[in-house]
Design a protein around this nucleic acid. Structure first.
Length: 118
DNA sequence: GAGATGACGGGCT
DNA sequence: AAGCCCGCCATCT
């Protein structure tokens, strides 16, 4: 239940991210109660099939106060992820970065609790 | 069970 | 500002 539970929670939480909002890997991990597992979050998402209903593009890396595309090489390219997020209204600067605070999803505790317990 | 890996992140250079 | 290094820890092999 260890691997499925954590990955499953990552997927569920990611699915709950509203269009136009993002979370960084560390924030996802923190919301799941384990602030040191940012890497595990990335690993869970790397297992995602290409036809998944999980909006993986809304989970991004964190670079200081910027959000940044962290994807390396995968089924989808960095440009694909940028395009998807731009379609959702996120404005990037010249370096595949955007002001993280401006788009960071901040659900209330009740909302978050409801999502994780469901 | 032991060692390697990684879609991270913060600190330092 | 951008890149390098190193610690974290669930998974993978």
């Amino acid at each position: 239940m260890t691997e499925e539970s954590f990955a499953e929670q990552v997927y569920r939480l990611t699915r709950a991210i509203p269009s136009g909002k993002v979370l960084n890997y560390g924030a996802v991990a923190a919301m799941l109660g384990q602030p040191r597992e940012a890497r595990a979050v990335g690993y869970a998402l790397s297992n995602l099939p290409a036809n998944s209903d999980v909006p993986w593009q809304r989970v991004v890396g964190k670079e200081g106060r910027y959000g940044k595309i962290s994807i390396r090489s995968f089924s989808f390219s960095r440009a694909e992820q940028v395009a998807l997020l731009q379609d959702e209204g996120i404005v990037f600067n010249d370096n595949e970065q955007f002001v993280l605070d401006h788009y960071l999803w901040q659900p209330s505790l009740e909302e978050l609790d409801a999502i994780l317990k469901d």
